[in-house]
C-alpha cells in the first residue's frame, strides 16, 4: 500500500509538471468557466441558479473524457507500461493511479468553481452542499470511468481524441448545461439522456439546489452511478484483455 501511495504522490507531482495535464484539467475549464460564467450570468439571469453545477459538469466532462485517455494511450504506445511491469509495478496499479489522480484534480477544479461562482457571478449556493459534493463524486466516478474506457479501447492518440469528441460534444450540447434540454427536439433530448452529464445536471438541480427537474433526480443519480460502474468494469475487462493479447 505504501508503494501505491508513493506512486500516487509521484503521479500528482508529474501531473503538475505536465503542461498538457494542466491545460486540460485546469486551464481550459477555468478559462471557460470565467468567460461563460460572465456571458451566461449577464444574458440569462436564470443560469445563475445552476451556474456552478453547469460549469462543473463542463469541466469534469472535459477533464475526464479528454484528459484521462491520453496518458493511458501514451503509456501503452511508449512501452512505459511494460517498463513498469518488469520493474514490479502491476498494470492495475497504473490504471488505479490514473483514475485517482484525475479524480483529485477534477475535484479541486470543481471546488474552485463552487467557491468562485457565487463570489464572481452571484450564482446561487446549493441548499445542500453535502448533496452537491455527493453528486459531484458520483459524476466524477462515471466521467473518469468513461475516460479510462476510451484510454484502454483506443489504439492510438488520434482514435482516442475522436472517441473523446464523440462523448464530449453531445454532453456539452444535449445535457442542458448550455441551454435547457427541453428546447431540443425530442429525439435529441432522448439521445442526451445516454450521457452522464444530462443526469448530473438533473441530480445537481434536484438534490443539491432542490428545485424542479425534468427527470427524477434520485433516478438520475442512480443512472450516473450505474454508468460509472459499467464503465469501470468494461475498462478493467478491456485493459486486461488488451494486456493479455499484447502477450499472445
Amino acid at each position: 500500500m505504501k508503494a501505491f501511495f508513493k506512486y500516487l504522490w509521484i503521479q500528482l507531482k508529474m501531473d503538475l509538471r505536465d503542461k498538457g495535464t494542466l491545460l486540460v484539467f485546469y486551464l481550459v475549464p477555468l478559462i471557460f468557466f470565467f468567460v461563460m460564467g460572465a456571458v451566461f450570468s449577464s444574458i440569462n439571469p436564470l443560469m445563475k441558479t445552476t451556474l456552478a453545477a453547469s460549469m462543473t459538469i463542463f469541466s469534469v466532462t472535459m477533464g475526464a473524457v479528454m484528459g484521462c485517455p491520453a496518458p493511458i494511450v501514451k503509456m501503452r504506445e511508449s512501452g512505459t507500461l511494460r517498463a513498469f511491469k518488469v520493474n514490479g509495478i502491476p498494470d492495475m496499479a497504473v490504471l488505479s493511479v490514473q483514475a485517482i489522480s484525475a479524480f483529485l484534480h477534477l475535484f479541486l477544479v470543481s471546488v474552485i468553481i463552487y467557491v468562485v461562482s457565487p463570489l464572481a457571478f452571484h450564482s446561487a449556493i446549493p441548499r445542500s452542499p453535502a448533496l452537491y459534493f455527493a453528486v459531484l463524486a458520483v459524476f466524477l466516478f462515471a466521467s473518469i470511468g468513461i475516460g479510462l474506457l476510451i484510454g484502454v479501447v483506443a489504439r492510438d492518440q488520434p482514435f482516442a481524441t475522436m472517441l473523446s469528441m464523440v462523448i464530449f460534444l453531445p454532453s456539452l450540447l444535449l445535457s442542458g448545461i448550455m441551454f435547457p434540454a427541453t428546447m431540443l427536439p425530442k429525439s435529441l433530448m432522448w439521445l442526451g439522456r445516454i450521457f452522464p452529464a444530462t443526469h448530473a445536471l438533473q441530480s445537481f438541480v434536484g438534490l443539491a439546489y432542490q428545485t424542479k427537474t425534468d427527470m427524477n433526480a434520485n433516478l438520475s443519480l442512480g443512472i450516473i452511478a450505474g454508468i460509472g460502474l459499467l464503465m469501470f468494469v468494461l475498462a478493467t475487462w478491456r485493459f486486461n484483455n488488451v494486456r493479455r493479447s499484447e502477450q499472445l
Binding site: K2, Y7, I10, R17, G79, R82, V86
Partner: peptide, 27 residues
C-alpha cells in the same frame, strides 16, 4: 530478475530520483 527492455520508456515528466524511489518502493 532485472530487465532492461529493448523498447521501454518512462513518463516524460518523471524525475530520475522519483523513478528510482518508485521502483524501490514497489520492490
Amino acid at each position: 530478475l532485472g530487465v532492461q527492455l529493448q523498447s521501454s520508456s518512462l513518463p516524460d515528466s518523471i524525475r530520475v530520483g522519483e523513478a528510482i524511489a518508485l521502483i524501490c518502493a514497489w520492490h
